[in-house]
Design a protein around this nucleic acid. Structure first.
Length: 574
RNA sequence: CGGGGUGUAGCUCAGCUGGCUAGAGUGCUUGCUUUGGGAGCAAGUGGCCGGAGGUUCAAGUCCUCUCACCCCGACCA
């Protein structure tokens, strides 16, 4: 491609809306332009890179027996009503009516459509496993799109879905996809971590997120300093200490006047007790039912864990009126003992280990001390309900948890039969019984992967593309367009590189050297072949490696060999 | 949805308590000079001042409504 023909306009200035490196550089390098909030035009350079990522996806997936399909962007409401998500999915689901008044939506994901497609064809266990994927435009009407392609409303996603005969087979597929994703992101030149993830509203029991490490990431990850344990903040656990509780030490309950002392810290200071001796009692609405959630006084409630363990769709703090009705006291004095209404009680592991705890008395301006789990109250469920923080013990080894930010570029879910049961995607097994298929789903954000690659690979001058996903692999820069021998040498090398299969741009614009260097650095070609009059007299050209900044003088006759060898080495590198 | 902010040239922005022909930089076009890290000089090109209504002799500027966009938060995969 000739720079004079390339549809691109590089920019020195950037609109102030661009906040992160990838957004700024995609914009400055003339790769994307915004059409509306969270909706972008992809110009040729961006599309070249996106297509390369897509082809890596295809290659790694096809090689593992996956098959590509394509489903519609526009989806009828009926399918969503059948799965129950027409009502659950919030305003993020863009809905509209056709001319006949029928309800439709733009697909934010395709579980419904794929399950429908599978059930039309699925009859026998002999047909399975199936593993289908598509690379396609999704639309999610995000509340706040940001960071360019990182969180857009319209975006390209690879979404895949698997169907297996039973759980064991489905878990094998899950593992296969986990390996495929590892191979894909490695080939894209990314440094990433696969972490344990919360499953959220999509459901299922098991999930991993593929997180690219970057300071601009929206997710917080905790990982062990020693072993391979890593998890999303929402899911992260810490070591559960053994609770050595000796009932002989239990003292008698005592209610104490604590006027205007509501928070754990205030009451702890007032009663001269450490906060670890407190039971923090919070009333939540879990799918609109009040639930008392207890954690140790020094810990915070993790709402994602409540949602996961109670298998709920919605978790929110109860409004004051509900709290007062349930406890029979003003807000700030809730506790497991003496509640006015009997509601479900769940407690964090640590709560059961507190001897003679203090907590709200369910009586305004009063707290109660010497409360003991098992004697004075019995939780309906004891589990892990706290936020885990950096510096805490790893749940798997004696290491310590560290914190880092990540960009979620992919996620794998073990879905089970959530959709296949509701939508009757069944088959007849070897014994003649009808069974629902066991499903998994697997997503990769293509644009987000490209953005994440830029976040990890850039400097103050511009993008530093990993070879595998660079829009072009090399650029030829003839520095003096008024010198025939320079132009001629450039054209010759350009033609030779193309013939050797190197995707090359020749900067044939009549611009000064500095201008060309800056554009080349900004766009981030992995290799720059610099042709200047002086070096040409010596029979050499300068080859600059963008990644290292290294410049080598190479005899003209050996340039093609050097570039192709460098390219192959980069593509092979892990 | 709550709070804050911005809409003026392709892009980044200035434009005061209303005032005469709406500005700068950058980009683009042309010419001359220059030619190894975003060159210099000169001449040009480029505007329904987001939209509608209102106040006024007079509105980019004031008022009302509206639309779009951005930031923080809440929410959400």
């Amino acid at each position: 491609m000739r720079a004079t023909r390339l549809f691109v306009q590089t920019l020195k200035e950037v609109p102030k809306e661009a906040q992160v490196a990838s957004h700024i550089l995609l914009y400055r390098a003339g790769m994307i332009q915004k059409l509306a909030s969270g909706i972008y035009n992809y110009l040729p350079l961006a599309l070249k890179s996106l297509r390369k990522i897509e082809n890596i996806l295809r290659d790694e997936l096809n090689k593992r027996g996956c098959q590509e399909v394509e489903m519609p962007v526009v989806q009828p409401a009926e399918l969503w009503q059948e799965s129950g998500r027409w009502n659950y999915y919030g305003p993020e689901l863009l809905r509209f009516k056709d001319r006949k008044g029928g309800d439709f939506c733009l697909g934010p994901t395709h579980e419904e459509v794929i399950t429908d497609m599978a059930r039309r064809n699925l009859k026998s266990y002999k047909q399975l496993p199936w593993n289908l994927y598509q690379i396609q435009t999704k639309f999610r009407d995000e509340i706040r799109p940001r960071f360019g392609l990182m969180r857009g409303r319209e975006f390209t996603m690879k979404d895949g879905y698997s169907f297996d005969v039973d759980e064991e087979a489905a878990l094998k597929t899950y593992q296969l996809m986990y390996e495929a994703y590892t191979a894909i992101f490695t080939r894209c030149g990314l440094k990433f971590k696969a972490v344990d993830a919360a499953t959220g509203a999509i459901g299922g029991d098991k999930s991993h997120e593929f997180q690219v490490l970057a300071d601009s990431g929206e997710d917080m990850i905790l990982s062990c300093s020693k072993c391979d344990y890593a998890a999303n903040e929402e899911k992260a656990r810490t070591k559960i200490g053994e609770a050595l509780v000796d009932p002989a030490q239990f003292k008698a309950l005592e209610t104490i006047l604590t006027p205007d002392k509501k928070s754990v810290e205030e009451v702890a200071a007032f009663l001269k007790l450490p906060v670890e001796r407190f039971i923090k009692s919070m009333i939540y609405l879990v799918d609109d039912e009040p639930v008392l959630v207890m954690v140790r006084g020094d810990r915070e409630v993790n709402e994602a864990k409540i949602q996961a363990q109670l298998r709920a769709n919605k978790v929110e703090l109860a409004p004051d009126a509900v709290i007062e009705a349930v406890t029979g006291a003003a807000v700030g004095f809730a506790g497991p003992v003496g509640m006015k209404k009997k509601i479900k009680m769940v407690a964090d592991h640590m709560v059961a280990g507190i001897v003679n705890a203090a907590t709200g008395a369910c009586k305004s301006d009063h707290h109660i001390v010497n409360v003991n789990s098992g004697r004075d109250f019995t939780p309906d469920l004891i589990g892990d309900f706290i936020k885990t923080k950096k510096g805490e013990a790893c749940p798997k080894c004696d290491g310590v948890l560290e914190e880092f930010r990540g960009i979620e570029v992919g996620q794998v879910f073990f879905l089970g039969t959530k959709y296949s049961e509701k939508m009757k995607c069944t088959f007849i097994d070897a014994a003649g019984a009808e069974k629902p298929a066991v499903m998994g789903c697997y997503g990769i954000g293509v644009g987000r992967t490209m953005s994440a690659a830029i976040e990890q690979n850039h400097d103050e001058h511009g993008i530093i593309w990993p070879m595998a996903i660079a829009p072009y692999e090399a650029v030829v820069l003839p520095l003096q367009m008024n010198k025939d021998e320079v132009v001629k040498a450039g054209e010759t090398l350009y033609a030779e590189l193309l013939a050797a299969g190197v995707e090359t741009v020749i900067d044939d614009r009549d611009e000064r050297a500095g201008f060309k260097f800056n554009d080349a650095d900004l766009i981030g070609y992995p290799v720059q072949v610099v042709i200047g009059g002086k070096s040409l007299e010596k029979g050499v050209v300068e080859v600059k490696i963008r990644k290292t900044g290294e410049k080598k003088e190479i005899p003209v006759a050996e340039v093609v060999k050097f570039v192709t060898e460098f390219k192959e080495a980069e593509l092979a590198a892990k």
